[in-house]
Amino acid sequence: MDIDIKGIVVICGNYGSGKTETAVNLAAARKKDGIDVKIADLDLVNPYFRTREARVYLEDIGIEVVLPDKKYMHADLPILTPAVAGIIQQPSELTILDAGGDDAGVTVLAALEDHLSKKEVHMLQVINLFRPFTENVQGCIKIKEEIESSSKMKITGLVSNANLIDETIPEHIYKGYNLLKDISCETGLKIEFITAVSHLIPQLEMDRFTCPILEINRRLNPPWKRV
């Protein structure tokens, strides 16, 4: 089963759920499928580990990356470049907007409401059940409602990004998928896809899933990690 998502895709979710790693890998996977991809970093709340740190990799594989001006790369300021409105008005086949965490991180979307309201937008909530506050259905729905209220947009799909970084095992991925099934039952939301780090994929029992899997190659690593 392949991921065939197109159009404007907003990646949101609670703080530290793995939105950027998901957004960057989704962009790369869809580019590999041969479609045109643009990605914008809308994370105005997080000081480290943002899309901008994967910029060189993404540009190398031909993805247009929309970021604040280079001279503001390390500014502790919420800078929204006007180019973001531009790529919403003239989207490519897939346009990914990587939002910041929690309700605070998606407030910026409300500022883009004029542009977004005229388009069909997939708004995906990324969930890692090993993160605080999203270990159960109630926690995830609470975050969903906070994000919707702050962004003035509706979440349309779910993504499980269940992981403990290097300590992830298949059981964790099954657990994340099962949580998504429960949330889906409760809310009626579609499970868009789940993620798994590339070396774990051969170990997964695929018949457990009825949704596609996004392969993750980590792009946001601490400076001592060498592959």
Partner: peptide, 14 residues
């Protein structure tokens, strides 16, 4: 069980 946390959050929980 193990959870995935930022250092800052983990200091708060600690």
């Amino acid at each position: 069980a193990k959870v995935l946390m930022k250092g800052n959050e983990a200091i708060g929980e600690a």
